[in-house]
């Protein structure tokens, strides 16, 4: 029982990270019907900026809370700027082009960002400086650490903030209007270009926070870390119903838990025929099942609520 509980906890922590990244995919898709494949790279950028700056500041003797704040601020700023720039340069000129064109551009942007990061930071792994003593708490036979609690807490806060932004503010209403019908929203006096740019900025800021959390959790950052992560988060967004914000949350958490349980039990279930490195089979099998029976994802039919 304690093993199951531990696996569920593992899954929820992993899932909250997926969910934060999935939100970025879903927001952009909701507004532009564009799959922004470069989003995983924005997360990587956030992680790399935060880790390098944090290492520098902590090394220079800056107090840890201040260093964390500055590193996070810088990561958010860099990611927001990159997000806005990518939208302006790579997506806006193609907004009325056939759908395949911006998709290909998105893949191109992803490769460009990855290679720029490789040139700037090199191929080696960056390590997250030990800023916080890890404390392990026992809870009903399972363990959880203060770092994990912080991660889940920060993830919940930022995602809650996003929901408030989308549902309760004037900007959120403009975003929802743009998502429903871009032309009509424009006719109603919504500055569509600005709203789209802001959407990218908000998604990228979330990505920066996610990047910092991921680097803190795993202790490492690498120019290549955004690719698989982006793919998983994208799957989570599709699982929950792409374009739907609560769907991204649900999809992310679900994917994390499924992966965790899959990796934990697949070996025992198949009598050792499939090892734990096949954990992704579980996740993607569930994804296929959901898409076969509910093509728009778990929460996909609530089109009206998408951002």
């Amino acid at each position: 029982m304690d093993v199951l509980l531990q696996q569920l906890l593992n899954g929820l922590i992993l899932g909250s990270l997926y969910a934060m990244v999935a939100l970025g995919y879903t927001m952009v898709y909701g507004i532009l019907e564009l799959i922004n494949f470069a989003h995983g790279e924005i997360v990587m950028l956030g992680a790399m900026v935060a880790v390098s700056l944090l290492t520098l500041l902590v090394g220079a003797g800056v107090p840890v809370p201040l260093a964390l704040f500055l590193a996070l601020g810088a990561a958010v700023a860099v990611c927001m700027l990159t997000g806005i720039l990518v939208e302006r340069v790579a997506y806006r000129p193609l907004r009325n082009a056939p759908r395949l064109a911006p998709l290909i551009t998105a893949i191109g942007v992803s490769i460009v960002l990855q290679n720029l990061a490789m040139i700037f930071w090199g191929r080696q792994y960056l390590s997250f400086p030990p800023v916080q003593e890890v404390q392990v708490y026992d809870w009903m036979g399972a363990t959880v650490t203060n770092v994990q609690l912080i991660i889940v807490g920060v993830a919940a806060l930022t995602m809650g903030g996003l929901l408030l932004l989308v549902n309760r503010t004037r900007l959120g209403r403009a975003m929802r209007a743009t998502a429903q019908n871009r032309e009509v929203a424009g006719l109603m006096g919504v500055d569509v270009n600005r709203v789209i740019a802001v959407t990218f900025a908000v998604g990228s800021a979330l990505a920066a926070v996610a990047g910092l959390l991921i680097a803190a959790y795993y202790g490492i950052a690498h120019y290549n870390m955004g690719f698989t992560l982006g793919l998983k988060a994208f799957s989570a967004a599709v699982l929950g119903g792409i374009g739907n914000i609560p769907g991204a949350l649900l999809g992310g958490l679900l994917l994390g838990v499924i992966e965790s349980l899959g990796a934990g039990y697949i070996g025992d279930l198949t009598g050792g025929f499939l090892g734990s490195h096949y954990q992704d089979i579980f996740a993607f099998f569930v994804l296929i099942l959901v898409l076969v029976f509910r093509p728009s994802g778990l929460l996909g039919e609530r089109v009206g609520e998408r951002a």
């Binding site: 093993v3 696996q7 795993y218 734990s276 954990q279």
Partner: peptide
């Protein structure tokens, strides 16, 4: 980079 699932299984 995530090994918590297999490590939990090993721990048991």
């Amino acid at each position: 980079t995530d090994f918590t699932a297999i490590l939990t299984s090993i721990k048991s």
